[in-house]
Design a protein around this nucleic acid. Structure first.
Length: 410
RNA sequence: GGCGACGUAGCCAAGUGGUAAGGCAGAGGUCUGCAAAACCUUUAUCACGGGUUCGAUUCCCGUCGUCGCCUCCA
């Protein structure tokens, strides 16, 4: 199959072995699960399903960032202990993922459980000269890693200029290069901290993912993905941390990034508070309709959530679903053609839009043709819908028409 | 500014070197005591300017415009 590789800035034919390693950056659990999260994990769920369909075994990791400025901040604001905040948000996230029929990941590590491994890698980087210590803080030295920029394609002067415009502080006197980033920072009052050779404190953000990926999957990771906002600096820095001082080691073979979902003219984000939550859509439309809705957008095209569009997709799904009822049949040749068309679209950079359209057209045609030979339409369509994560209707719902789309599955 | 995506009817959107699917909305109609639902019919100089070509919406160059990312973020 072909997938767009961010680092190559082009679609790449995936050259994969029987076992595929997949690392997807997970959530920072304090505002789960908004539509942007759902779209991102839906995308990688479809990818996983397709790879499995094509005979691969998929080993996947999705981390949980539970050591983070925002977690500590929200914990204070809501006056809830960090562990409790993380646990309750993760319960929501898991409930949403399960309800939306997402295949569970193989590993779901918490950053706080891998501190030792992070400290070990930071120590290696310091020892080999790719990192340095100032004021109990460890920085990664950009200048020791000439390939910095390989993922996002920014050149160093551009990145510096940008960081100035953005009001960051590239002039931090402790940094050797304005773009050097933190690997370890000293503890602040009220935050979780661990003992390390440089200070009691906590790791920087980027080191958690590269360490977890390396520890749980081994290098190189076949496919590493996440939201497109993570390309720079997060993924750029992950690659630097993993590859520095290791000649010939490649961190990731293919980078896949999912575009953002907007709402009311703004990017949907936790800091802006303009969130649509997965659980709300689910309870209003049903999990199957939500999955169908998400499939109407290509993962590399940014889009805007609109109630009307969601409504339309939901109605369309209900109509298509209803058209599969009764004894509608589809000719064997047409069924085979549909299956291969759907797979063709999905293997072309996960074109869920084209694949979804093919199914819709086939249902309409089969309904209009009204043939008496061939296979029952639903028996042909349901396995294809499952590639999109649209779960088969539950037996109870199937026997009670109309109830199907109202199940919350939670 | 850099990089990326993209500009097709009121809205969304598929697609092709030989004058363009579908959906929603709108309009008209069938049906109905009226209405709803359902069904039928109907709606486009394919952003602009060049170039290649017998012929481009589809290929190439340029222009304009929209959106996204750019050390909080999926």
């Amino acid at each position: 199959m072909e997938l767009y590789n961010t680092a190559a800035a082009a679609k790449a034919h995936l050259d994969l072995g029987p076992e595929v390693s997949l690392y997807v950056c997970g959530i920072t659990p304090y505002a789960a699960t908004h539509l942007g999260h759902a779209f991102t994990y839906h995308t990688f769920d479809v990818l996983t399903r397709l790879l499995m369909h094509d005979g691969h075994t998929v080993r996947s990791v999705r981390n949980v960032t539970d050591v983070d400025d925002d977690i500590f901040r929200v914990s204070r604001e809501r006056n809830v202990p960090v562990d409790q905040l993380v646990a309750s948000e993760m319960e929501i996230f898991h409930t949403d993922c399960h309800a939306l029929n997402m295949i569970p990941v193989t590993h779901e590590p918490y950053a706080s459980e891998a501190i030792d491994a992070m400290i070990a890698r930071i120590a290696e980087l310091v020892a080999c000269g790719a990192a340095y210590v100032v004021n109990r803080t460890v920085y990664f030295a950009i200048d020791a890693f000439p390939a910095y920029g390989q993922v996002s394609h920014y050149d160093i002067p551009t990145m510096i200029a940008l960081s100035r415009e953005r009001g960051a502080n590239p002039d931090d006197p402790d940094k050797r290069n304005p773009l050097d980033f933190i690997l370890w920072q000293p503890e602040a009052p009220g935050e979780k901290s661990w003992d390390a050779p440089w200070s009691r404190g906590r790791p920087g953000w980027h080191i958690e993912c590269s360490t977890l990926a390396e520890t749980l999957l081994g290098l190189p990771v076949d496919i590493h993905g996440g939201g497109e906002d993570l390309i720079y600096p997060h993924h750029e820095s992950e690659a630097a941390q993993a590859e520095a001082c290791r000649k010939g080691v490649q961190f990731v073979r293919y980078w896949a990034h999912v575009s953002h979902v907007g709402y009311e003219g703004e990017k949907m984000s936790k800091s802006l508070g303009n969130l649509i939550f997965a659980r709300d859509l689910r309870s209003r439309k049903g999990a199957r309709a939500v999955r169908h809705f998400l499939a109407q957008y290509h993962y590399r095209t940014s889009w805007e959530y609109e109630d009307a569009k969601c409504e339309e997709a939901s109605d369309e799904f209900a109509r298509l679903d209803a058209l599969c009822d009764g004894d509608v049949r589809i000719e064997d040749a047409a069924a085979e053609a549909l299956a291969s068309e759907v797979l063709h679209h999905l293997r072309n950079d996960l074109d869920t839009v084209g694949a979804s359209l093919a199914i819709a057209n086939s249902i309409e045609r089969a309904h209009a043709a009204n043939v008496s030979t061939g296979r029952p339409l639903r028996a042909v369509v349901e396995p294809l819908w499952e590639l999109f994560g649209i779960a088969p209707p539950s037996p109870a719902a199937t026997s009670a028409h109309g109830a199907r789309q109202h199940g919350t599955d939670a």
